[in-house]
C-alpha cells in the first residue's frame, strides 16, 4: 500500500502533528480529512506510531481510532506533497472538529 521510498527525485515530506480538538478523528472529521487528502495527486500515508496506511482511505483513517491528543505521522510523496502536508497539518491542529451527528442517529 504505502511503499514510498525516498529518492533524490522524489523526496518524502514528513511531519508529526497532534490532535488538539477535544473530540478525536471521528466519522465526520475523518471524512473531511480524507476528502482533503484526495484533493492532492501525491501519495499520502498516515499512521499513529505503528504502521502507516493510505491517508485517502476512510477505512484506514477511522481505523486509526485517533482520539484527542493522539500524535499522528503524515508522509507525502509526489507532486504537491509539501502543500498537502501543510493543509493536512492545519486540519489536524484545529481546535475543534465539526460536531458528530447526534448519537441517536443510528
Amino acid at each position: 500500500m504505502w511503499a514510498g521510498e525516498a529518492t533524490l527525485d522524489n523526496p518524502v515530506c514528513q511531519i508529526t502533528v497532534q490532535i488538539k480538538s477535544k473530540n478525536g478523528l471521528h466519522m465526520r472529521p475523518a471524512m473531511q480529512f480524507v476528502d482533503l487528502a484526495n484533493q492532492y495527486n501525491c501519495e499520502i500515508a498516515i499512521g499513529n506510531g505503528s504502521e502507516l496506511g493510505d491517508a485517502k482511505s476512510i477505512m484506514h483513517v477511522i481505523g486509526l481510532a485517533a482520539g484527542p491528543g493522539t500524535t499522528l505521522e503524515i508522509h507525502a510523496q509526489g507532486p504537491g506533497a509539501e502543500e498537502a502536508v501543510g493543509a493536512l497539518r492545519t486540519f489536524i491542529e484545529r481546535e475543534t472538529f465539526d460536531p458528530e451527528p447526534p448519537k441517536d442517529a443510528k
Partner: peptide, 21 residues
C-alpha cells in the same frame, strides 16, 4: 435527515478505494 447521514457514511465506506483494493 439522520438516517440519511448513516447511508451517506456507508456510501463513503463502500467507495473507499483501499477497501476495494
Amino acid at each position: 435527515g439522520r438516517i440519511k447521514d448513516i447511508f451517506a457514511v456507508h456510501l463513503r465506506l463502500l467507495r473507499d478505494r483501499s477497501l476495494r483494493r
